[in-house]
Simulated assay, not measured.
Amino acid sequence: MKQEEQVLEKVSLSDPAVAAIPVRERDEPLVDLRTVAALRLDGRFADDEGRYAQLRIGVVDRLVTAQTLLPQGFRLLVVEGYRPLTLPRSFEPAASGFGSPHVAGAAVDVTLCTVDEVELDLGAVNAVTTESGYTAEARHNRDVLAEALSGAGLVNCPGAWWHWSYGDRYWAYLTGSPQAWYGPASP
């Protein structure tokens, strides 16, 4: 197991060391992904206001970069970006002292699809599975996703292959940055 994978297994989003990282807000706007042609959106967590399709511009830039790092025929499929504090998910612990990194517009739940927008097998988004709980195809596709997203500078949440972030406290902790760049956002 790689050292980075060991760190990911040991440190949760709600770890006090993560929550202690200060935020030096960059005031980057949220971008509506429905206007970003390079990315595909999935509507399973869509809300009436379209907030699920919003992310900080720095995260969007990295997702577009990650898209270019994928093998031919693969596309990123964004499931959810920004999520207000008033819309927590039952499976999600409070993180970084202000709730999920989704409230900062710094986290994205993402999977893969084909160019024809057929979702690929990576296992269920927001479902905890053990090593034996998914197929070899899902493992391969998860590796493809992880290589592209980490290559673009995003970090992964332990136990949640679909959850990636950039610029939040968890990202700062894993990368050694003395501060996070994004606190809670307002659409």
Rank of each mutant, 00 (worst) to 15 (best):
G43I: 03
T175I: 02
Y82A: 00
E137V: 14
I57S: 15
L145N: 00
R75L: 08
V78G: 08
V59A: 13
A95T: 05
K2P: 11
T114I: 05
A136Q: 14
A53F: 09
L122Y: 02
D27S: 15
G97M: 02
A152G: 08
Y166F: 15
L30C: 09
R75P: 00
A66R: 09
K2I: 04
A94S: 06
E9Q: 12
E25S: 13
R62V: 01
Q72I: 05
V110W: 01
N156F: 00
S90T: 11
A160L: 10
R44Y: 08
T129L: 13
A53Q: 07
W171G: 01
L13Q: 06
N156P: 00
A172M: 11
L120P: 04
C157P: 00
R40T: 11
G99L: 04
V108S: 09
R44F: 03
E5T: 13
Q67L: 03
A136K: 12
L76M: 10
L13W: 12
S165L: 11
R169D: 07
V36I: 14
V18A: 07
N126E: 10
S132A: 15
V7Q: 15
P88T: 05
A146S: 15
T35N: 04
L33M: 14
G81A: 09
Y182C: 01
Q179M: 05
F91V: 14
V23M: 07
C113F: 05
L39D: 04
F98H: 12
P84F: 10
W181A: 01
G81S: 11
T129Y: 07
L63Q: 00
D32L: 08
D48K: 14
L112T: 00
L69S: 08
V59H: 00
E131G: 13
P71Q: 12
D109K: 03
S177L: 02
E119I: 07
R169G: 06
A106E: 11
Q6F: 08
D47S: 15
